[in-house]
Simulated assay, not measured.
Amino acid sequence: MAANGSIVLSRKQKIVSSLCKHLSLDPKILLDDVMEKDIKSLYFNVRKSSGASLDDNHEVMKWIELAESLPLDFKSCSGVLNKLDDELALKSVLLGNGLKPSEVDVIVFSVLHPLLSKEDFGELFEKILLEKAKFKPQLEGAKNPVKVDVDSDAKKTLQSAKNADKLDADLNLKKSDTGIKATGVKEAAQEKKKSSETEAVEKDKEISVSLLNIQVGVIRKAWKHPSADSLLVEEIDIGDAKLRQVVSGLAKYYSPDELTNRRVVLITNVKPGKLRDVMSEGLVLCASNEDHTIVEPLFPPEEAKLGERVSFAGIDGKPEDVLNPKKKHLEKITPHLFTDDKGVATFKGIPFMTSCGPCTSAIPKASIK
Rank of each mutant, 00 (worst) to 15 (best):
N289A: 10
E202F: 14
E281I: 00
R220G: 07
V284C: 00
R244I: 09
I238Y: 06
L243P: 13
V247G: 08
R220D: 06
L211K: 10
D237Y: 04
V218L: 03
V265G: 11
D240C: 04
P297W: 02
K252D: 06
K203P: 05
V218E: 08
R276K: 13
K242Q: 08
S230M: 11
D291L: 15
V247R: 12
E235C: 01
S210I: 11
I294Y: 13
E235L: 08
S195W: 13
D240L: 08
G249P: 08
E281Y: 00
V270A: 01
K252R: 11
V233L: 02
T198G: 10
K224N: 13
V264T: 09
K242F: 02
V218R: 08
N289C: 14
Y254L: 05
K193H: 13
S288I: 15
K203T: 14
A251S: 10
D291T: 11
V209C: 09
K203R: 15
L211V: 12
K203F: 06
K252W: 05
I214E: 05
E281V: 00
S230I: 07
M279D: 10
I214P: 04
L259G: 07
P297A: 06
V216N: 05
V278C: 02
M279H: 01
M279V: 03
T293P: 10
P226T: 12
E197P: 03
D229K: 14
N213M: 03
V295N: 02
I238H: 01
E206C: 09
E197Q: 15
N213Y: 02
R220P: 00
G249I: 04
A228Q: 15
R276I: 07
V278Y: 03
T268Y: 03
D257S: 12
E258V: 00
G273V: 03
S195T: 13
S230C: 09
Y253H: 13
K274I: 01
K274N: 05
P297Q: 03
K205E: 06
D237V: 01
T293L: 04
P272N: 01
K221P: 00
L231P: 07
R244M: 10
I238V: 07
T260A: 09
D257G: 07
R244L: 11
D291G: 08
G249W: 02
I294L: 13
V216P: 14
R263N: 12
Y254S: 06
I238M: 05
A200G: 03
A241H: 10
A241I: 05
D277A: 11
V216E: 05
